[in-house]
């Protein structure tokens, strides 16, 4: 732990949403510094608009898509990797399906799976991490050593072993990515939990005779929530990259379903057959890159606001 665990009260009042009664209490304090407002940098604003754009596509894309994900826009004129033209604004893929439609279907799959997996990683990681921090050295020791063993594997290898063992489907992908990244969330949550556990107000609550549930819910969680939530974006980036890489390797979302990673893989032939359109490979790759880079821009703003990279805290 690099940073000092002790934060003044002002840190808390600007970082977490306290229950109404406590909020009023803070406002009565004369010496509380003026609240800092969270402002987005120009780059951050670009990031927010790109992420918002992709979220809208993910939510409504499947309804707005001009064709079904496996429909041929030009059934009478079959040829692979057609250049963009009216009716198929991004051209067609290796089996003449509409790229634009597949991109829109793929958006909801790639983004949906990633968000659910990250949420799962947070639920498991935070529950175990905070649990390890409050339940004493022995539980902490066991959980942390097991976690270390998983952390010492490259994430993609964990993914490969799981897919080799149980095959690939969307629920399995969500659970796999969720559990793989729960290890990282666990480490962060445990570090933050341990940091808070040694603070005076926790000691005071203990001496008052509060039970463990109260400690976690009223003392630890309000202080741990903000750092954990601001790390969510970074974790989401890694999960998107993980899911896309698995799909790219042909081990994630299975054809004929569209997903950005598998779209890159299945259309790689466009790079080898000269003359055809290369958009089928470029479009999904650019889609993932714009999404993850845009999230990164927002993450940079958040971490600048909350004082440095969170990864530096563990």
């Amino acid at each position: 732990m690099n940073s000092t665990p002790h934060q003044p009260a002002s840190y808390m009042d600007e970082h977490f949403v306290a229950p109404a009664a406590e909020d009023e209490l803070f406002e009565e304090l004369q010496d509380s510094p003026p609240k800092r407002k969270f402002r987005l940098s120009p780059a951050g604003k670009i990031g927010v608009s790109i992420v918002a754009f992709w979220l809208l596509i993910a939510l409504f894309g499947p309804f707005l898509a001009p064709y079904g994900e496996n429909d041929l826009p030009f059934p009478d004129d079959y040829s692979e990797f057609q250049a963009p033209r009216p009716g198929a604004w991004l051209g067609t893929d290796f089996s003449d399906r509409d790229i634009l439609s597949r991109l829109m279907f793929g958006a909801s799959r790639t983004i949906g799976i990633s968000i659910f997996a990250t949420l799962l990683a947070y639920m498991v990681g935070v529950a175990l991490g905070i649990g390890a921090a409050v339940s004493g050295p022995r539980v902490d020791m066991v959980l942390s050593r097991i976690n270390d063993a998983f952390l010492s594997l490259p994430t993609i290898m964990l993914g490969l072993v799981v897919v080799a063992a149980v095959g690939s489907s969307i629920p399995i992908l969500i659970v796999t990515a969720g559990l793989v990244y729960a290890t990282v969330v666990y480490r962060l949550a445990r570090a933050i939990g341990v940091e808070i556990m040694v603070m005076d107000f926790v000691e005071a609550a203990r001496l008052r005779g509060e039970n463990t549930f109260w400690l976690v819910w009223r003392e630890i969680w309000p202080n741990a929530a903000m750092p954990l939530i601001s790390d969510f974006g970074l974790r989401l980036i890694y999960v998107i990259l993980f899911i896309s890489s698995l799909s790219f390797l042909g081990l994630g979302v299975q054809p004929p379903r569209a997903d950005w990673g598998s779209m890159v893989r299945e259309n790689l032939g466009a790079f080898q057959s000269y003359g055809g359109s290369v958009i089928p490979v470029v479009a999904p790759a650019v889609a993932i890159a714009t999404l993850t880079i845009a999230i990164n821009l927002i993450v940079d703003d958040i971490s600048a606001f909350s004082g440095g990279k969170l990864s530096g805290r563990i």
């Binding site: 990259l241 896309s244 890489s245 890159v264 993932i288 890159a289 990164n296």
Partner: peptide, 22 residues
């Protein structure tokens, strides 16, 4: 570097193929 860190590996590969091959 910030952009490349956040982008997937196959995006970097696509970019290089586009630039050099195409």
């Amino acid at each position: 570097t910030v952009s490349l860190v956040a982008a997937p590996e196959f995006f970097t590969a696509t970019l290089l193929v586009l630039i050099f091959v195409f």
